[in-house]
Design a protein around this nucleic acid. Structure first.
Lengths: 209, 209, 209, 209
DNA sequence: CATGAATGAGTATTCATTCAT
DNA sequence: AATGAATGAATACTCATTCAT
């Protein structure tokens, strides 16, 4: 929706090539970052894993931090893609919410390592860039706020307007905690148990049976 | 309960001196880590801020990661201290829960930067040490699990046994998100509004009016 | 006089095109070298300032040092052009000398940055090429040696033969120092004051009133 | 005279050690710079030639440019030392001047490579530092200005006051050109021939027989 | 016990040059 | 002829850790 992409200067002119190469780089980098963290990954490793020379890497980027930004943006776009790709069939807002939450939790589970990455490395971004990434995070939150509003409109969701934002954040966080507390949660619950229980909790908040 | 302290070797023998010095070091380091992050803080900075020489630092520790571990342990102990210092007056488990949650949220707010630090830098710990820190995190979660059990025992809380753990985690995470989502939440809510709303949500889960 | 041009290989065959392109390159490069020095100027900057691609640059040259050589040769030719373009009207060698010195000093002043460039960057040339550039420098010195000889021949200049070379060098250096000591000289003297005083000094050496 | 030393921060505290180590570094660096130039000398080469580790080098300096500055200052101090070490015996200012010039020329000859170095690498200094080095150069020039004034005072030198500065500069430059024009001068003249001829020229300027 | 000088492995980034198109 | 994408060798500087005093 919002086009909040930050234009990273590239020495290479052809935009298609730039996009293709950067995808190469980003996909190699995500895996490395997941495995070793941003700081312990060297630019040379990124280049090698991308199948290009270190010089070439810097033809498409200006700094290592740019890689991190692209990785964060990539992850957010992956999440957003999954959340929006297939239009959900729902009778009302409440139904749509439940289906969306389930889909979001599944997505968090699928992209576990990526979600974790965002939690852990985001702080290494330069302040300006950090802001952008947080905006992307907020955009995702807004997806749920919109659904809640829809339910409020058709009467299937009962929630004071000032609580909409908070509930949207709750949804996101209750989803993401499946990854950043996985050391405890995965021991006790399956994804399905976890999802159903949290959905139930959330439904209580909107006074839905 | 569990004595999960990791014994970090020190070249200095007198345990009192060791403890005193380490406290010096840790208190200097927390502030530096909060300000610049673990990776961008140098051991020399830590030594200088601690008022000791870099050589002395290594008399009391074996590595920079040891500092991070001590910092994490320090933060957890600060949290635990605040959560347990004054015995709460409560008629029943449910009341105790509400008071405890409020106290926890206040504590998270007070130690905002520290809580955030744990979220962001924990991953830089070596695996063995990480485990210990996660245990400390779990210990805090267990405090709430115990309260929930108490409420279940006196009938003031209705919750299936298998949901106790999850609810305890929910309490912790809903508290901590006040810090790691502060870029959004603090814009819309005061701590009080936030706390009351989340308490309400949590109470619904235990079928308490 | 001496054709001491070094033939720099070019992949492009048409000699006219080669000369034209190289002039483009050299004129762009001089300004860059003056501004930032040889080492801090990149070949890409030179290409861009020349209005050609980096690949094209290397069609007409073999290395960055070639650019420096061409720049030095260009500067020398500019100096020589100015020194020889208009035949001076003079009654005798002594008069010719005075006029030539004045003209040289004016030329040094005009090409200040270029003269300085030669002083500062010449050493970055490969030995063989350096030799050539020094020969060009000597050729300019020889212009004055010739004038001195002419004055000796017509009796207007009194100077032992073995002192001719040295005096010619003195003329050149006393002229060039107007640039490489400008940080001091320009504070105290105008070009005219400076010129007249140095001319007077030089005239004393040839026992001319 | 003027204490125009720039204090370069050092991580090492003991000033004696700092001075000793820096001398080590500078003496190793001068030779390398003479041989290969500033830009083509690496910091590791400097460290190795100094007999210390690269890390140690940076304990005593903050940047490679610091080395260059120290080298320039060292050279100037060497020149100044030689010019002022033994009080010259002279009947009057004129005699003192002649002896001083001879001594200066001998010194330039002895320190040829160093003098050349200053001419060629000075421009690589950061602007502020460059200023300092030029001040040191001016201080040396002032030594001769002072001698000229002395001769003017005792009547052995006849020179208008406004010409004193210029003549001092001429002395310096006519001395230094022995190095930066050595490719031509050394072919034709011995140091002695060269010195005597230039002394003669200079004496004419002060109307001394 | 306390200190801080010494160390060198490690790292992001640059840039002259090549070569396929 | 003209281009610019690809390359990797090269380099200044940092910083955790050690160890002699």
């Amino acid at each position: 929706m919002t086009n909040d992409a930050k234009p990273i200067p590239s020495r290479v002119l052809d935009p298609q090539k730039v996009e293709a190469r950067r995808l190469q780089i980003v996909q190699a980098a995500v895996e490395l970052f997941v495995e070793k963290g941003f700081h312990k990954t060297t630019t040379r490793e990124i280049a090698k894993a991308s199948g290009i020379g270190i010089g070439t890497l810097y033809e498409y980027l200006q700094s290592k931090e740019d890689v991190l930004y692209l990785v964060c943006a990539y992850i957010h776009s992956e999440v957003e893609k999954r959340l929006t790709e297939a239009r959900l069939q729902a009778e009302n807002g409440r139904d749509l919410l439940v289906q969306s939450v389930r889909r979001f939790f599944a997505c968090v589970d699928e992209l576990q390592n990526y979600v974790l990455l965002i939690y852990q490395e985001t702080k290494s971004l330069p302040p300006d860039t950090l802001k952008l990434v947080l905006q992307q995070e907020e955009a995702i939150t807004q997806l749920f706020a919109d659904i809640l509003e829809k339910g409020r409109a058709d009467g299937s969701i009962q929630l004071a307007p000032q609580h909409v934002k908070l509930m949207a954040h709750n949804i996101i966080v209750l989803g993401q905690m499946w990854t950043f507390r996985r050391w405890a949660l995965h021991r006790h619950y399956t994804l399905e148990e976890y999802t159903e229980r949290q959905v139930k909790l959330l439904l209580q908040e909107i006074h839905a049976p």
